[in-house]
Write a protein that binds this DNA or RNA. Structure first.
Lengths: 180, 180
DNA sequence: TGAATCATGTAACCGGTTACATGATTTT
DNA sequence: AAAATCATGTAACCGGTTACATGATTCA
């Protein structure tokens, strides 16, 4: 069996959250909101939208004001497909395709200076990431109403923050051990 | 520019840790040790080994006892390439291509029962993962000498354990909030 | 009106997976 | 000796990326 494609469901989810969105708008979502845990480029998105229109999961309309922009909306069937997908259980954990772990893995001696280098740099990367996430939380969820109406999104963001903080804590502890 | 291929470096790292390893042995490494953060199938590994022999990064020898097994070792150049790669800084965090976050992201209301379902199942998955990781730590690193001689591997494993525990803690807390 | 940009679309390429294939080795 | 398995190898396919292309719109 060919393995399950995820992209069409993501597009359904985005269109559900942003009715009347354009292809470009969807592309932007991948650069901002969703970008932390999924990537897709416009050259992948446009053909996919075409297929989904053909499958009657979404509809496309054009505005007379701007001849080239296309606006997408869910059909009843599309919404059903989305909800069905959301209901399906997740049965496998993702693998963390993680260069940091990978390089660390192959370094044998604790006193190899590259271990300290790797950890120090990873700390810096994670600090930037944490700042970015906290900024986004502040920006998007400063009002309680936004939390209530986008609770899943809120959870995902706070989870990412918690995870990043946890990693930073661990890395700092290890760095201290190495410095002793 | 085409993006950096990682697989050859992983193979170098594996062969460095396990001189005289076979192609099959390398394949097994991906099912056990490295499997948590990288996947590769034998049909990807064999052609890659061939290329690496052609590039003189590794050597291949055959044993008279078993005509079909091939044994691989690093050349001086291969070791240099590996060490050079390990020294290069990691400049980007991996994206977490994570179905759990993705589905959560699209569920809007906190009282949607699918949130609780997702979290409960994720907890179960992570518990299994944690057991597995703790077992491996016990198995591989019960002796201090193993820690000292494979310190990077040890760090990667303990980091994965810490991360998994952190996630479990967070998920349980969220589940409690939802149950209040 | 020409230049720059925007929104959409297409084509070539590439890494990785699944499925199939082969010859050697072990098992019964 | 036949059957099952093992270690290696190959081929077809597919999702995704990079690069290129086009027509509409905005800007100077």
């Amino acid at each position: 069996m060919p393995k399950q494609r995820i992209l069409p469901f993501i597009l359904l989810g985005i269109i559900d959250c942003h009715p009347q969105i354009t292809g470009k708008g969807i592309t932007n979502e991948f650069n901002t909101e969703i970008g932390d845990f999924w990537k897709a480029s416009h050259s992948q998105i446009y053909p996919e939208l075409k297929r989904m229109v053909a499958d009657k999961w979404i509809t496309v309309t054009q505005n007379d004001d701007n001849a080239k922009e296309k606006y997408y909306n869910l059909t009843a069937e599309g919404l059903e497909v989305l909800n069905n997908w959301l209901t399906q259980a997740v049965t496998k954990l993702p693998i963390h395709q993680d260069l940091f772990s990978l390089k660390l893995f192959f370094i044998k001696q604790a006193n190899d200076p590259r271990i300290k280098d790797l950890i120090t740099r990873q700390i810096n990367l994670l600090k930037q990431e944490l700042d970015h996430l906290l900024e986004r939380k502040e920006l998007i969820f400063s009002k309680q109403a936004m939390i209530d109406n986008h609770y899943g999104h809120y959870l995902v963001l706070t989870r990412a923050i918690s995870r990043t903080q946890g990693q930073l804590k661990w890395l700092n502890e290890e760095l201290n051990k190495l410095n002793k």
